[in-house]
Amino acid sequence: MSFSWKENLPQELSDKVTKVEKMIQPRIDEIDEQVLYNQQRVLDLFRKHHVGEEDLVPSTGYGYDDIGRDKIEDIYADYFKTDDALVRPQFGSGTHAITVGLFSMLRPSDTLYYLTGTPYDTIQEVIGLAGNKPGNMKEWGINFKTTELKNGEVDYENAKKDLQDKSIKVVAIQRSLGYATRKTFTMDKIKKMLKFIIKVLRVA
């Protein structure tokens, strides 16, 4: 026996719901198609990396020679087309993961540059712009530079000047707004940012 949640709605409201469903059906079909495509990509990568039952069980000790962990990291790197990946339950938050990534690339006297203005509060503590947490980047002699946003958008004119700093080792883009009032940057805008960074740094 089938049951529809619309059966308990007043007829007028049920008709409106049906009308909206028909209107958005093309978009729902697109999403379903994308889901199936991504699912197929993951299944293909499971086959490519020979994932077996033994890779899906917990391991003990320090995780040395944990082939399941190694394979899942290889799959993530393959899926996102990166050189490598770290997929660990030890990462407690997004800030934790970003911090590990930044500290792996930056050394004393290097400069971390944010194209998208001052980062959100917890990253500020990691950099040493706020709070007094020991071991922050400032304490390690790592410099920070940013080009503040202009009306919620990247200030490309000033960013071009700021990127001339030869000590810049890492250029960061913060997509999310954090606690700011600007809108989240779209992927198209980030694509434009990346092209701009590559062009400026190549000329420099």
Rank of each mutant, 00 (worst) to 15 (best):
I72F: 09
R41I: 02
R69S: 14
I75P: 06
V20E: 03
F196T: 05
E73F: 08
L112M: 09
G117Q: 05
L36T: 09
A159Q: 03
P26W: 04
P119F: 06
K189N: 15
T111A: 14
Y179K: 05
S109T: 15
N8R: 15
Y79C: 07
I28G: 10
D110S: 12
M193N: 12
Y120W: 02
L56V: 11
L201D: 10
K48V: 07
D74C: 15
Y114S: 07
Y156E: 14
P119W: 05
I198E: 14
E73T: 05
I197R: 13
S14P: 07
P10Q: 07
V51D: 03
V51E: 02
Q40W: 01
I173N: 00
D155F: 04
L43M: 09
R41P: 04
H96V: 01
D55W: 10
K191S: 01
Y113M: 08
R27Q: 08
K189A: 14
K71R: 09
G178F: 03
D29F: 11
G135K: 02
E148Q: 10
V126W: 10
L112G: 03
K48E: 08
G63P: 07
F185H: 00
A172M: 01
L201G: 09
V200R: 02
Y37S: 03
S167F: 10
I197Q: 12
G61Q: 06
K161H: 09
A180L: 10
Q11F: 09
T184P: 02
K133N: 10
L86C: 12
Q25H: 01
A180Y: 13
K189R: 15
T186C: 11
L106M: 08
R202D: 01
Y79Q: 04
E53T: 04
G61D: 06
K199W: 10
R107M: 08
R69W: 14
I28A: 11
A204K: 09
V17T: 09
L163E: 02
E12C: 01
F80K: 06
M137V: 05
V57F: 14
T118Q: 01
K160M: 10
G117A: 04
E153S: 10
I142N: 07
T99M: 09
H96E: 08
R27T: 14
E139K: 06
I127M: 08
A130C: 10
S4P: 04
D55P: 05
D162T: 07
D65Q: 15
M1C: 12
K160Q: 15
K71P: 02
E157Y: 04
I75C: 06
M105R: 13
K71Y: 04
I123W: 01
D121K: 02
F185N: 00
I28Q: 11
T186D: 14
E7W: 01
F46E: 05
I72M: 10
